[in-house]
Nucleic acid binder design. Structure first.
Lengths: 144, 144
DNA sequence: TTCCTTGCAAAGGCTTTGCACACCG
DNA sequence: CGGTGTGCAAAGCCTTTGCAAGGAA
């Protein structure tokens, strides 16, 4: 809740207008535990009001991302997903089988990051990486 | 060249027919150093014959992937890319800025894989992972 | 009042699909 | 020959865009 206001304040500071749509969209991603797709945000909005539109959701999420007020993550297979910044960096473990997304500790990657820097002079963005595989449940069900 | 025949043989064994189109598509990805998108394969085919079609390229690449005869990798932003299996496992370092794809040693990930297995019971597929960031060139040009 | 935002609908890019014909085996 | 594979065109899916009307500041 507080976090909504932070984002709204920053938007206002940057000269953007605060509209009911933007408030609702920010609330949606700020209150959500997990990351949300544009479609999911839109569905959430519809619970509160009819006056809403998918295009607006896309525009607003994109705006937040461009202005550095939200994270944007590509889970593959066209799954683009958003979250607020309070949602700290972490690894996404995406199950290829059931599509579940497990969040893992990003510290697992610090070694990798420095290796990539020294060996390849590559500045890796590991803030919100996605790793694909099969989760325990699917494996035990022989689905993966 | 030899590798083309391997793939063709396996296709035949599985009961699929060998057509000129399939031969050309397999040649294209087998001869290429890097991974190729459907569009790129299609462009390559056109150098050899007019009798070709994007839909066929999509169908064939998908077939090869489904049958385990080719790798398929999602580089994000809708960039789906294919390669043969002789192209061993490796990490893709994708530059967000210039879109370059650098290939890195997959051994950098062995520790990570076991950590994910023990901590999260997650069987990570690190064969062809993509990591986003900024390459040296773009960083020195302040583009990233 | 100004001009940023929205809603709507249409366009876009990429991929898939239906269908009749072609052609591999 | 029989049935798979192809080309073509159209449809689908997700996302973006043009434009006129609405509403924040």
């Amino acid at each position: 809740m507080t976090h909504c206001h932070t984002i709204l304040g920053q938007l206002r500071e940057k000269g953007y207008r605060i509209t009911p749509q933007r408030e609702l969209i920010i609330q949606a991603i700020a209150h959500s535990e997990a990351h949300m797709s544009a479609e999911e945000v839109f569905t959430e909005l519809q619970k509160h009001t009819q006056a809403t539109n998918l295009a607006t959701v896309y525009r607003t999420l994109d705006l937040l991302w461009e202005e550095g007020l939200a994270r944007r993550n590509n889970l593959g297979e066209g799954r683009i997903v958003y979250a607020t910044l309070k949602h700290g960096p972490h690894i996404h473990l995406v199950c290829r089988c059931c599509n579940a997304v497990i969040e893992a500790d990003p510290h697992l990657l610090v070694g990798l990051k420095s290796e990539l820097a020294t060996r390849h002079s590559f500045s890796a963005d590991l803030q919100h990486i996605s790793i694909f595989g099969v989760c325990q449940q699917c494996r035990s069900q022989n689905k993966g």
